[in-house]
Amino acid sequence: MKNNDYPNYFIAGDAVSTQAQSKYINFVKYDLLLMIFSALISIYNYQTEESKTFIYVISGIMLLFAMLISIILKAKKYEDTWYRGRALAESCKTLTWRFIMCSEFFENNIPAEESDKRFIKRIKEINNEFADLNEVISAKKINAPIITEEMRKIRGLSLNERKEYYLENRIENQIQWYSSKADNNKSKYENWFSLVIICQFLALISIGYLIKYPMSDFNLVGLFSTVSASGFSWLQLKKYQENKEAYTTATSELNLIKAEANKNFSDEEFSKYVLDSENAMSREHTMWLAQKRM
């Protein structure tokens, strides 16, 4: 399913989360870069008073902007909006798959009008849980349908067609996404950690240089220390290692779920299979949200 085939609150929550994530990460990136550039222009000990004053003023301006960015991040709470918007979107998504697969509470023996009513009620409950996002959610996106034509089309498929669709477009799609993300986060974690170690080593070399040449006009210790500290901050922000472990675990669970599908389901069995599968997938983002609240 495409994003526009999901309910309006998924679309709205996904958009809010993506925008807040982009703003938060970019602001943190600018904050770290300003501190690095401030350290960079201070590596040379200028001899004239005018040169020193100029460098100090530029460095001070950079640090001031870095402080203002930190204040903006604190005030705007982009990180909270990012996490809660993602939780809203994922909650709507897993409920949608239960609905279109005729899983528990939305079985295909229920009249269409009743199943629609139940789905809309649950969507409203989810929205109420994230009512604090209403001030940033796009009204235009909320005007989209709660139950789309594509959702009704998939719900009307036969049992075997729904099973095939679910395995290909939900289970397999999530396996590919999680496994790709796990490998990507592992690679980035190793690269960034290597950068941190290299900068720490270069800081030690710079100290050794100053010990041997204490009258040198160049001091690179502050620069390499700042880059190293910024690298650690970026690692903490992106949580590459934690994400890699979470994505690997999710991939393993989904592969086990996929293996259980090699049987002929009855309507009741498939309903339970989808429910268990969606609970497993929602567990990952529920735990993710809980960790952010700690």
Rank of each mutant, 00 (worst) to 15 (best):
I55N: 10
R293H: 09
R122S: 01
L275C: 14
S266V: 08
E164I: 10
Y247V: 05
M62I: 02
R155N: 08
C199A: 13
A203Q: 09
Y30F: 15
C92P: 00
F270Q: 05
S187I: 10
I25K: 02
F193G: 13
N173M: 13
F232M: 15
S228L: 01
L289I: 14
E49V: 13
V274H: 01
I69H: 02
Y273S: 02
S70F: 12
Q19R: 15
C92V: 04
A203V: 04
D217M: 03
N8M: 00
H285R: 05
A89G: 04
L64P: 06
E278S: 02
E79T: 03
K74F: 09
C92L: 06
K121A: 12
E190Q: 12
R283C: 12
S22C: 12
E49F: 11
L95G: 05
K140E: 15
N262Q: 04
R98P: 05
I137R: 12
I43R: 00
K76Y: 06
V136N: 10
Y46E: 00
H285M: 09
E245D: 09
Y44T: 06
D31I: 08
N3K: 12
T251W: 01
Y44Q: 07
M67S: 11
N184M: 10
T226Q: 05
L33W: 14
T251Q: 04
L235S: 09
L202I: 12
N173L: 14
M62L: 15
Q21C: 08
K238V: 00
Y166N: 05
F224G: 01
E242R: 11
F201E: 09
D183E: 15
P7A: 01
L204S: 03
A12E: 00
G222S: 10
F218N: 10
S216D: 08
C102A: 13
Y165F: 13
F99N: 00
N3R: 12
A280S: 15
R118L: 00
I123W: 02
K163C: 06
I154T: 11
N134R: 13
L33K: 14
E113N: 03
A261L: 11
A261W: 09
D116H: 04
A246Y: 01
T96I: 04
D217E: 01
K244S: 02
S216A: 07
I61K: 07
S115I: 04
